[in-house]
Design a protein around this nucleic acid. Structure first.
Lengths: 222, 222
DNA sequence: GTCTATATAGGGATAGAC
DNA sequence: GTCTATCCCTATATAGAC
């Protein structure tokens, strides 16, 4: 910080290199799976030496951790609070879409969740905290809709529903990849995912809310 | 077949060794994840040399393929056809439980589905065929219940529902493991999984069928 | 059928020059 | 900050003796 504010020349260059490494790593991890991407591959793709890569990151796990923190910052947001049940559906739809976009962008995490979380506490604990919060969010939203008379479900039903929402939201894109829709996920695929999740809630909805949701979903009949 | 029927002494011994290798591999794969189990570990656990293991199996993938074929044979069964909607629920419950038990027994496949299927056609294609058949099964069951008046859902709703049933049934045990219930899965955990899946269908059920299902689920409130 | 010994390959990570 | 060279370890798989 020699010039009073911002970064000096070297720090800027370092920062740019770090960014390039993170960007290319994300791309390669998503394409081939984290386990199949070597530090050599990352360096080669950037026309950089392996030694240089290790100057910027202690090891490969540290790259994964950096990417995970970016994922966490993007995904760990609550939906906007809304008053009326009518716009609630629309808002939920957009929120869900945003979540699925983020999962898609960092899909390498979900391809190997089990191993990734098992071998690294710095991923497992934060990830589980995020899931805990999402669960609370879903339950609160459902209870809100229930109080507004837009949703009919017991507390027990809402609890079980919330778990299923988490499972489908977590694994939908992964499942689609297994089924052969791996490449070129478009807005439509994300929309279909959002539709599948909303369809879990749909049968509990009443009146306007339900009709509104059916309308949103109609464009995503696969 | 020197003695006219059955196997001679050597063939029996070979068969026993093959079984020991498969059994121990399954145990270790489930415990540590297939990627983290080396052929050396398997041999050591059996107090056998690596060379001997490779006498019985060309490579590690062949062990995985053998185990997969056993999994496929166990899981790729249709549920029994039933006439009345009342016993249909009970039968579905048992069938679902059976499926989840099998998934649990071969859970190493599900810990790394993506990689496993991506690198081996002999796994990917059969696995997807199984999922296709399961999908058909779920749809046929729902349509049957609908015709009997026990379920109210449009064809479109049933289609979307079937996809969600597949996702939850496929990933539930995996999800529970992520969440920290990795060890000591008991009948209750499997029951809870079955309950989660049935809860997807539950809101579409009418009258007796729904009450019957609620009764089954009550013992699995987590 | 089972063993010991080893070839082979790949990938994570470091040392030290520039 | 970046490079070249290399160490070290691990894992798959094979060769050949018994």
């Amino acid at each position: 910080m020699a010039r009073g504010e911002g970064l000096d020349g070297n720090a800027l260059r370092t920062q740019r290199t770090v960014e390039r490494i993170l960007g290319e790593s994300l791309r390669l991890f998503n394409e081939h799976g984290e386990a199949h991407v070597t530090t050599g591959m990352i360096a080669a793709a950037l026309e950089m030496s392996p030694g240089n890569l290790y100057y910027h990151f202690r090891n490969k796990d540290q790259i994964v951790e950096h990417l995970f923190r970016r994922f966490a910052a993007r995904v760990d947001l609550d939906p906007p609070a809304v008053a009326d049940a009518g716009s609630a559906i629309e808002n939920l739809w957009l929120y869900l879409h945003l979540m699925l976009e983020t999962i898609w962008e960092f899909r390498f995490l979900y391809r190997n969740l089990d191993d990734l979380l098992a071998r690294n506490r710095r991923l497992r604990d934060p990830f589980n905290r995020i899931l805990d919060r999402k669960r609370d969010v879903v339950i609160a939203l459902c209870e809100g809709l229930a109080r507004a008379g837009a949703l009919h479900a017991s507390a027990e039903e809402i609890r079980v529903l919330a778990s299923n929402v988490l499972v489908v939201a977590t694994y939908w894109l992964n499942f689609q990849a297994l089924r052969g829709r791996r490449d070129a996920v478009s807005a439509e695929d994300l929309g279909q995912g959002a539709y599948q999740v909303m369809a879990l809630v749909s049968p509990y909805l009443q009146g306007d809310a339900r009709r509104h949701l059916d309308g949103l979903g109609r464009q995503y009949v696969a």
